[in-house]
Design a protein around this nucleic acid. Structure first.
Lengths: 334, 334
DNA sequence: CTGTTAGCGCCTTCAA
DNA sequence: TTGAAGGCGCTAACAG
């Protein structure tokens, strides 16, 4: 007892059922090729023995593992869990297993992980990678690859476009009478930050608002708190923050100066990772990260189905979710 | 070009390097058996061809996949990302790949996933499973299994014990002069909730505090908000909430009644998932979930190393993190 | 419909 | 120190 010996194999089942091993194989992979009775017989004895197909063996034999890898910079960054969840859910629909890789935003770990998955995944979804474009293209040539939030022409990718949401946010703020707003940025290198910054510039110009840009490297609470000092005396009445965490830091930083959100200044965040679960509930720009996860895996499925990686560029929009931190219109300063 | 054909194999490398396939195998798995020169030669040509070992084939041949699975109820529940991250980090240290499974707290998905991983993992870490004890034991007999936050005697498990943290919290509240406190619970079935409830009962009794228990099924913001009405007029001056999300809801519910935290009532949360990134920063009980992830994988490693699953029961303590929501001592109501 | 055969890529004896 | 041979568990032709 406590028989932790090797799992039963196809041929043990075959022997027990008095059939050929390949019939057992068929019973699981192509039951339509067998008579109902033999399928039933085989399934029954398989069940009895506690058999289930060895996926490594299947992979080796068919060249398809039924696995995909999802490589993200930081599992614990609130942006990613919904993405993982979405990817997961979509993978489930096709009985794919998903590996998760965490790179800590480290270029070398990205490469390491990709190598480590070799031969046991049919493709990989790479979220917000650090790798240079050429490396990405090189990998994409050797295996099905889908990018998330990284725009490399020629490689299938799903992008979350903040522009619509930012546009709505700026319009909303302008509508509330704000004339001078600040943007507190995120990691300078990130595609998302560049994108958000340029979107807010355009939108501010469109609405004739003055824009103060506050540079900021880390997407952290502390960074948000510190960033507040850069806008003291800048005369802004509304702030857009790179993400929800920074926004929380901004709230704290303002509170320390006796400035209250939204009473004294309006605040719009991005990503909607914390928004619903926080008080006051953040007005924020929904980031669609779960949808992005779904889309990426769905795209991967298409690629694996057709064996061709077309140059797909799938863009997800965003929109403003108005909650409490932007609610009170502030009178124009003039 | 764009040669997405099969990855190079050991024998292609062998041919290119003018050696036997088994030497290539050795160069990667047991380089000490070869001369330095041949290893160098082989590694070089492997690199040139872009070869890396096919892990499915390795798994089939050795009976060890080098993979483990981590099955959690909900990736997006803020309790789990740190756990995943910890597990990940620990797995990395031994070059393990980790599969992630999401059960949506659904018993059947648990079983489904376990089957789906079969033959391609060396063991699985099961966090907060729904399965009945016997099923868990059955699985544990067939494969290395480590539980997190589920106490099944005989099965290796790592548990996060809230009692110490709860004890500190109650002592802290008692020290601030509170005489009557409330506990707003979480999912009734969860091991954690039972544990926290009984811990707080004991601690309250020890300090001579009156305890009002507010039952509550969901660990959500909304549930927290609603729970507030149950304690209106109960005369409590401090609240302990099952987790941080509920706590945020409680803050909102109180605010709606013009009760401000911590000015009018003290609040202690559990898990420290949101605490640092929120304003006001929550006084909360650290949950050690990252450590739990690490410990679980480390335990798994031990088991895989020795091929015996001893009946380990690894308990992680917790402690109170005092931040802002419990800060202002409230005068005793008498 | 079912059995036979060969082989997926790698590791591991056993010889040399 | 290296080569040769068999097999891990399964699938995919090919027969029958």
């Amino acid at each position: 007892m406590n028989d932790k010996g090797r799992a039963p194999t196809i041929s043990q089942v075959a022997k027990a059922a008095g059939v050929n091993p390949s019939s057992v194989s068929r019973a699981f992979s192509h039951p339509e090729l067998l008579s109902h009775e033999t399928v039933a017989l085989i399934k029954a004895t398989a069940e009895k023995l506690g058999y289930s197909p060895n996926r490594s063996a299947q992979a080796l034999s068919t060249g398809r593992s039924g696995n995909i890898a999802l490589v993200v910079p930081d599992v614990a960054n609130p942006f990613f869990p919904p993405l993982i969840r979405g990817a997961q859910a979509e993978a489930d629909r096709s009985a794919f297993c998903v590996f998760i890789g965490n790179t800590d935003e480290d270029l070398r770990k990205e490469e390491l992980l990709l190598r480590r998955f070799s031969g046991q995944v049919d493709g990989v979804v790479l979220a917000a990678p650090q790798m240079p474009d050429e490396r990405i293209r090189a990998y994409a040539e050797r295996m099905p690859l889908v990018l998330v939030n990284r725009d490399v022409p020629g490689v299938p990718r799903v992008l979350i476009d903040s522009a619509p949401g930012i546009g709505e946010a700026v319009a909303h703020l302008a509508g509330c009478g704000h004339r001078r707003i600040a943007y507190i940025g995120g990691p300078g290198t990130s595609w998302s930050n560049k994108q958000r910054h340029s979107a807010i510039q355009k939108a501010a110009a469109r609405h004739g608002l003055a824009l103060v840009k506050v540079p900021n490297q880390l997407p952290s609470y502390e960074a948000g708190r510190q960033a507040v000092q850069s806008i003291e005396g800048a005369g802004v009445t509304a702030i857009v923050a790179f993400d929800d965490i920074i926004a929380q830091g901004v709230i704290a930083g303002l509170a320390a100066r006796n400035i209250e959100v939204p009473r004294d200044v309006a605040l719009v965040a991005c990503d909607d990772t914390l928004g619903v679960a926080t008080y006051p509930r953040l007005t924020t720009i929904s980031n669609q990260s779960e949808a992005a996860g779904r889309a990426a895996v769905s795209l991967m499925n298409d690629i694996l189905g057709s064996r061709v990686a077309r140059d797909v560029r799938y863009v997800l929009g965003t929109h403003l979710v108005i909650r409490m931190t932007s609610g009170v219109p502030s009178p124009p300063p003039d």
